[in-house]
Simulated scan of single mutants.
Amino acid sequence: MTTTTSNPAIVLIAGHWLGAWAWDEVLEHLTASHSVAVTLPGLDGDDPHRAAKTLDDQVAAVLEVFARLGVSEGQPAVIVAHSGANFPVSLVLDRHPGLVQRVVWVDSGPVSAGSAFAPDFPDGVEGLPLPSFDVLAQQASLEGLSAEALERFRARAVPQLGPVLRQPVELMNDARRKVRTTLVCCSIPGAQVMELARAGHAVFAEVANIEHLDVVDLPTGHWPMWSRPGDLAEAIQSAASRLS
């Protein structure tokens, strides 16, 4: 497969509990023929060895997809990371910034060095199941999700692995901050995200260190791939076509 910097491969990675299936509706709207959604190791419910997977395994899986697509420093990819996919994708940016032409954070953003999603998640607990939607709605906006989307979410969700939740990320390469970046802000407006970043809020602080940043507002809930799939695809396609 041949890609160019003006027509890059697009690799989509969803957040917690989700596999490649979460992007099905978005992929229907993306015009690029080399757009690929990824199920990270540990989030394939049919994998009998999934409990042993780590963030490093997830990074390796992304790099395997890059290799299959012919991604190189001469032909870098656009990587799209939703929600909790920010941990493995931040590691990809740190270790291989030259392979990424642009990162698109979907209601998400880069993580800070040394951070872990849930450092106190109990040892010995294999994973975090999808909570009830009443509980989930207290943590993230469900705005725009139909009953059908929620039913599919419940039916297909895979528990998020405890080791992945607990593992802190080691980030050492400042070149990750030079990768062109688009924030697609959904449940929190972009202006508020930037205000929190400048204030040093733990979740958003790393955003303030990005050198080339675009902010796009797409008002909806935390899962825009289901609530506004066409608009999200348009935002991704627009970001992928930007060379500056």
Rank of each mutant, 00 (worst) to 15 (best):
D214C: 03
E211Y: 15
T182G: 01
I210A: 12
G190C: 14
C185S: 13
H212F: 13
V184F: 03
M194P: 02
E206C: 07
L213K: 09
E206V: 10
P189M: 05
I188K: 05
T182L: 00
V203S: 14
P189V: 06
E211P: 08
L183F: 06
G190Q: 12
A197Q: 11
G190H: 13
I210W: 07
D214M: 08
V207I: 14
F204L: 09
E195I: 00
G190W: 12
V179R: 01
H201V: 13
G200A: 08
P189D: 04
I188T: 10
H201E: 15
A199I: 10
V179M: 02
R180G: 05
R180N: 06
L183A: 07
P189G: 04
I188L: 08
H212G: 12
I188S: 00
G200Y: 13
V207W: 01
E195M: 07
C186K: 02
A208D: 15
I210L: 15
H212E: 15
T182A: 00
G200T: 09
R198M: 10
V193K: 03
V184T: 03
G190K: 11
I210K: 11
V193D: 06
V179W: 08
D214P: 01
V203W: 14
T181K: 00
C186I: 08
E206F: 11
E195D: 11
N209A: 15
T182S: 02
G190S: 15
R180I: 02
S187A: 09
L183K: 03
H201W: 14
V184Y: 07
R180D: 05
V184W: 01
R198H: 10
V184I: 08
I188E: 04
N209Q: 14
A202F: 13
L196G: 01
G190P: 11
T182R: 01
V179Y: 09
A197K: 07
R198C: 01
V203P: 05
A191P: 05
A202Q: 14
T181G: 03
A199C: 07
I188C: 02
I188N: 03
V207M: 05
L196H: 07
T181C: 08
R180Y: 06
T181F: 03
V207D: 06
R180L: 02
A205F: 07
L213S: 13
V179K: 00
C185H: 07
L213H: 10
A202N: 12
V207N: 05
V203T: 14
S187T: 05
T182V: 00
L196I: 04
P189L: 01
T181V: 07
F204I: 02
A208Y: 15
Q192T: 14
A205M: 06
F204E: 05
H201F: 15
L213R: 12
A197L: 12
D214E: 12
Q192H: 12
G200Q: 12
P189Y: 08
G200K: 08
T181W: 01
L196D: 12
V179S: 04
P189C: 03
E206Q: 10
Q192E: 15
Q192D: 14
C185E: 00
H201N: 15
L196C: 04
C186W: 07
